[in-house]
Amino acid sequence: MQRRNSFGTQLRYWRKARGLTQFDVAMTSGYSQRHLSFLESGRSNPSRETVMVLAETLGVPVRERNALLDAAGFAPLYSQEPLTSEHLEIVLGAVHEVLASHRPFPALLVDRAWNTFALNETANVLFSQFVGGGDAYPSLDAVNAVRICLDDAGLKPFIRNWHGFMRGILGQLKTELRREVAHQGIAALIDDIQTALMASKADRDASLADDFPVVRLQLERDGMQVSLFTMMSTFNLPLDATVAELRIETFLPADAASRAFLMALDESVHGAGSQRAMSPTV
């Protein structure tokens, strides 16, 4: 979608993308259906407040809200700072503290297309042991967290439940795309996962069999086994598009053996008795 599209065209685009009628939006936003019709047709011009209310009603992502404001003739409200900006220094400093405090368990900082920008020491040490040989991944702090799971030189050969895990990721990405709508990075990941799943000879029905409450990442290599589940954290009420797209993915052990494995891994790096994050009882 071009940034310079008229406000009415963009409003109609987001309404239809959400599967809503003008009546639906009117009931939620507080504006009349007639007024919404006039806005979409260009017969009426919105105020700045109207743009923001409708963007909130339609769940328009922060970055795309600036395009709506521009189309309506208003200055952008949200900043779009690079991660290297001093403006984000305090926020990113807090992120790195969260990553470090999650030790002895892994944690990553990713964007909405799963590009990795940072990871804690545990994640680096752990996943480096399960990445295939060679020079394909000399560093893990700038990889795509999904693509490395699709790569035979990455984690793919060592994910015991690869088919079931990737089906879970596929569902998550499809949900994300329904919110983001036109995000090319997410759409490309979905296409690549679907292609890989179609080419897989795994028992697709068996891959769904798991009595754990959430999809797990089950890694196995040379006698090492670890089973993990994840939680995602985002910023509340972001006013910067870059910050709005960041996610902290924290990994937690899915069983007692995996917890013990991660604790032992931490001790091998830092020594016994070093300070650790609180560990859940499993």
Rank of each mutant, 00 (worst) to 15 (best):
R216M: 08
N66K: 06
Q218C: 03
A277K: 04
A272R: 09
L99Y: 05
E97C: 14
N5V: 08
R167Y: 10
L239F: 08
F130M: 11
W114E: 09
V131E: 04
L189A: 03
A264N: 03
I159T: 10
H270D: 11
M166E: 10
L228I: 09
G134Q: 10
L262I: 04
G164D: 07
P157T: 12
A256W: 00
Q80P: 00
A145T: 09
L173F: 11
R259I: 02
V60E: 02
F117V: 09
A55L: 07
P106Y: 12
T116L: 14
R48Y: 13
F7L: 03
V25I: 11
M263T: 00
F38S: 01
R48H: 11
E176V: 10
V131W: 07
H35Y: 15
A153S: 11
F212C: 00
T175P: 02
A254S: 09
S29D: 08
S85A: 15
S258K: 01
S227F: 00
S227H: 02
R4M: 06
L140W: 14
D255I: 09
R160H: 13
R276D: 06
R103W: 13
L92I: 14
F130H: 11
K16T: 10
R178E: 15
S44R: 05
C149R: 07
F130K: 06
L265N: 01
A187E: 15
L58C: 05
V95A: 07
G154A: 07
S227M: 02
S233I: 02
N161L: 13
E249H: 03
A260T: 11
D111Q: 07
N124F: 12
F38Q: 07
T281I: 11
A260S: 11
G271N: 01
